[in-house]
């Protein structure tokens, strides 16, 4: 294809997106669109899969059967979300094995929030309330993103995510209505998860390199800072209901803007964790790698069994 022909195709493509038409896997798309989507969707899928690890840590120690079935169902949902997203990503012409490879070698990223440890049961409450709460705010606009398979996967994910946040908040509420010690545990979890949750929206708009292009492709509808503000505005009153204190001395409501003002985020910490120096980065990746490597013989056995059965069927047919 000549340069001019590609330019024409790009123009038609951009107009399609501007008209809110969806792009489907077999449609022509600029290479940069394909690459950006592989990067973002796979990063999203990896986050769901790695996100199972900090919570899985507490399944066997859940305080009641009610809490245990809920947590099991939530972690199973995360696996499901990862699978929807891997499937969507594969329609762009990358294989599942390549995607895993990128995660295991560190070439692909996942959400840094999962590199923090879950030290107490209250962390499971805080994750559901804050981490899933932030994820919902990030994800809802993606239900209308331009790439069809991604948008469809996100519709399913968002439908399921709301139970995650509610079960987390209920855990916090129960702890806050419990003994002094239990309430302290809830406060301690909020103290540790608050700032990392704010970082989930990514760098400030000034620092964010992908925002402009992503807005054009409807991979983003609002900027990082707008989404972060939305999260703070809706979460602070929820903390008030729990009777917990947000660990930010500078936090105050501005009557003129109708928004909360908040303190400086520690971006050095954010970049440290992104670069692999968080508390659990190594542990998370090695858990994923071990699961994949140690499961190889099972995957092979399943293939051998399938092949043997299909040979039998052929012989019976003859």
């Amino acid at each position: 294809m000549s340069q001019n022909e590609i330019k024409d195709l790009e123009k038609i493509f951009e107009e399609k997106i501007a008209r809110d038409e969806r792009i489907e896997p077999k449609d022509w798309m600029p290479e940069k669109y394909r690459k950006t989507h592989i990067r973002q969707i796979s990063q999203h899928a990896h986050s769901e899969i790695v996100g199972m690890l900090p919570e899985g840590n507490w399944i066997t120690r859940a305080p009641s059967l009610r809490r245990k079935v809920a947590l099991l169902a939530k972690v199973q949902d995360e696996a499901g979300h990862g699978l929807y997203l891997y499937s969507a990503c594969e329609t762009l012409g990358i294989s599942r094995e390549e995607l895993y490879e990128q995660l295991h070698t560190g070439k692909a990223k996942y959400s840094s929030i999962f590199n923090y440890p879950t030290l107490t049961w209250a962390d499971i409450g805080a994750i559901g309330w804050l981490v899933d709460g932030a994820a919902i705010i990030n994800q809802v606009p993606l239900c209308n993103t331009s790439f069809g398979p991604y948008a469809r996967a996100m519709v399913r994910v968002c439908k399921e995510e709301s139970f995650h946040q509610r079960q987390g908040y209920e855990i916090m509420l129960t702890l806050c209505n419990g003994t002094e010690e239990q309430k302290e545990m809830a406060q301690d979890a909020l103290n540790r998860w608050w700032w990392p949750s704010l970082m989930m929206f990514g760098p400030t708009d000034e620092e964010s390199t992908h925002t402009e292009q992503s807005m054009k492709w409807k991979l983003k509808r609002k900027t990082n800072d707008e989404l972060r503000q939305q999260f703070i505005d809706q979460t602070v009153p929820q903390a008030d209901i729990l009777g917990l204190t947000i660990p930010d001395e500078d936090l105050k409501f501005n009557n003129d803007t109708g928004h909360y003002e908040f303190g400086e985020i520690n971006w050095d910490e954010f970049w440290q964790v992104v670069k692999g120096h968080g508390m659990c980065n190594k542990e998370r990746i090695s858990a994923r790698k071990n699961a994949w490597d140690n499961g190889e013989w099972v995957r092979d056995a399943a293939v051998a069994y399938a092949e043997k059965n299909s040979e039998k069927e052929i012989q019976q047919a003859i």
Partner: peptide
């Protein structure tokens, strides 16, 4: 509804 990987 979507797709998935399986041996058979």
């Amino acid at each position: 509804f979507g797709s998935l990987h399986a041996a058979d």
